[in-house]
């Protein structure tokens, strides 16, 4: 299972990288969103065994819990990546409003030559 999840994360990373390298700002943002999915899956698979226990809630009648640490990390990460996505989306939107383009090669700040 871990290997499978890792490979899935790897595929997502590839897709995300390709999107990030593209010219359009929207694709880049979509790429970062996908990248965070991949990261979450990766962290998840790094715990001590997937599905290797019960939910991490201590109650009678349930066996030993799964590794809770990656879950805590991911919970933080989910919210942060939401904030990042929101911020970059708004940046893209305002950039488009001001400059009329979302093409990164047209958005270079410095004038060359």
């Amino acid at each position: 299972m871990e290997t499978l999840i890792t490979i899935l994360a790897g595929v997502l990373v590839t897709v995300a990288t390709y999107l990030i390298l593209s010219k359009s700002l929207i694709r880049v943002i979509l790429g970062t969103a996908i990248l965070s999915h991949a990261a979450h899956l990766l962290i998840m698979s790094m715990g001590s065994g997937l599905k290797n226990g019960s939910v991490p809630i201590l109650d009678e009648g349930i066996g030993p819990p799964v590794d809770a640490l990656p879950q805590a990390l991911i919970l933080t990460s989910i919210v942060i990546s939401f904030a990042v996505t929101a911020l970059s989306l708004v940046l893209a939107y305002r950039t488009y409003q001001e400059t009329g383009t979302d093409k990164l090669d047209e958005l270079r700040g410095i004038k060359h030559e």
Binding site: I26, V55, I78, V90, A92, Y96
Partner: peptide, 28 residues
């Protein structure tokens, strides 16, 4: 993977993000 908190959060965040994307893309 036995992570109910994560699942809940992820579902809601995903929903809100999708709404966000839709709203932003409306203008883009």
């Amino acid at each position: 993977f036995r992570a109910p908190d994560l699942a809940l959060t992820q579902i809601i965040v995903e929903t809100v993000t999708t709404v966000l994307f839709l709203v932003a893309y409306y203008f883009l």
